[in-house]
């Protein structure tokens, strides 16, 4: 009966979203008057989950699950859900969770809501609030199936501490024939990824050319931020495509999104609106971004950014 949460990890340690998913699962379990079980894959020590309301942990250790495979992971979560007799399964909105969730939904005959923002507004009928129209609207979404699958948005529910026992037990799973095999992974290990970053520093065509990105990287460095860019910047080849954010690029749900020399076109804003605090630096006071931002500086990026870096370094040194 318990609520099942899939707590993602990397190299054996939980991602922050795993703790958010656990916190969310605990809130839903409270509504339903039940407990929270987590499934972890190749995590050595799951005790941290006990801080976020998890009562029981099904610990899967399996060499065949070392690299992510949507079908295999979906099968593992399905087996955990069936063992627990779960009616509500919670996953995150990470790239990998969004990949496995539709497969899991079909396996479990579960109605699936993605980009969920809050705990259900009602559990009978079961209705959740989700993001739709690329953050331009909310949708109240009803799930009619007996088993429900929820994909929660990042950085919305937040972390909520709740002491619980997080009793761990080994759980072995049967892995189906895969069909898709990973040949190679190409991942920058020294950089903060846009998906994981608390702060994202992003720059647009206002920077004039790729040679001017040094100060953006330095600003990101001082803030411990990931770097991103507007679509034309990646289309022009000034920056890699992986940095393109917006409606047709990566979504950004950071705590702080700092935009430099980006006009704030509707398609750009659509992808970054889920960020909590937005700051814009733009030379043109009429730039649409000022309507969407919380804080703004009207000024020349080539003057403001170096000055900001200097002041931030002083600030950080004092902390």
């Amino acid at each position: 009966m318990s609520v099942l949460v899939y707590t993602e990890s990397e190299n054996g340690t939980f991602k922050k979203i795993a703790l958010e998913v656990a916190s969310y699962g605990k809130a839903v379990a409270d509504q339903l008057g039940t407990t929270v079980t987590a499934i972890t894959i190749n995590v050595d020590d799951a005790s941290e989950l006990g801080n976020y309301g998890v009562d029981k942990v099904l610990n899967v250790t399996n060499k065949d699950l070392e690299t992510f495979n949507a079908k295999a992971y979906a099968a593992a979560i399905q087996q955990a859900a069936e063992k627990e007799g779960t009616k509500v399964v919670v996953v995150s909105s990470s790239v990998n969770s969004k990949y496995l969730a539709p497969l899991l939904a079909i396996n479990l005959n579960a109605g699936y809501a993605s980009n969920v923002l809050e705990v259900p507004s009602s559990t009978s009928p079961f209705i959740v609030k989700r993001n739709a129209f690329t953050n331009k609207a909310f949708e109240m979404f009803q799930i009619n199936t007996e088993v429900k699958l929820l994909g929660v948005s990042k950085n919305t529910f937040g972390l909520r501490e709740n002491k619980a026992s997080a009793k761990s037990e080994a759980f072995s799973v049967t892995i189906p024939e895969l069909g898709v095999h990973v040949d190679s992974v190409d991942k920058a290990t020294n950089k903060v990824s846009i998906a994981d970053a608390e702060i994202v520093v992003s720059a647009g065509r206002g920077l004039k050319g790729p040679e001017n990105w040094g100060m953006i990287e330095e600003l990101a460095d001082v803030l411990g931020a990931a770097t991103a860019c507007s679509k034309p910047v990646s289309d022009l080849g000034w920056r890699p495509h992986s940095e393109h954010v917006g409606q047709t690029g990566k979504p950004v749900a950071a705590n702080l999104y700092l935009a430099v020399g980006i006009s704030g076109a509707i398609q750009h804003l659509a992808g970054i609106n889920a960020s909590k605090v937005k700051v814009v630096i733009n030379i043109d006071p009429e730039a649409p971004f000022f309507k969407a931002a919380d804080y703004g500086v009207v000024g020349d990026a080539f003057v403001v950014v170096p000055e900001l870096i200097k002041k931030l370094k002083t600030f950080k040194a004092q902390q």
């Binding site: 095999h181 040949d183 992974v185 991942k187």
Partner: peptide, 11 residues
Amino acid sequence: EIDGGKETVST
């Protein structure tokens, strides 16, 4: 595309 990079798969 994966978080922070890309991977190549065969199928």
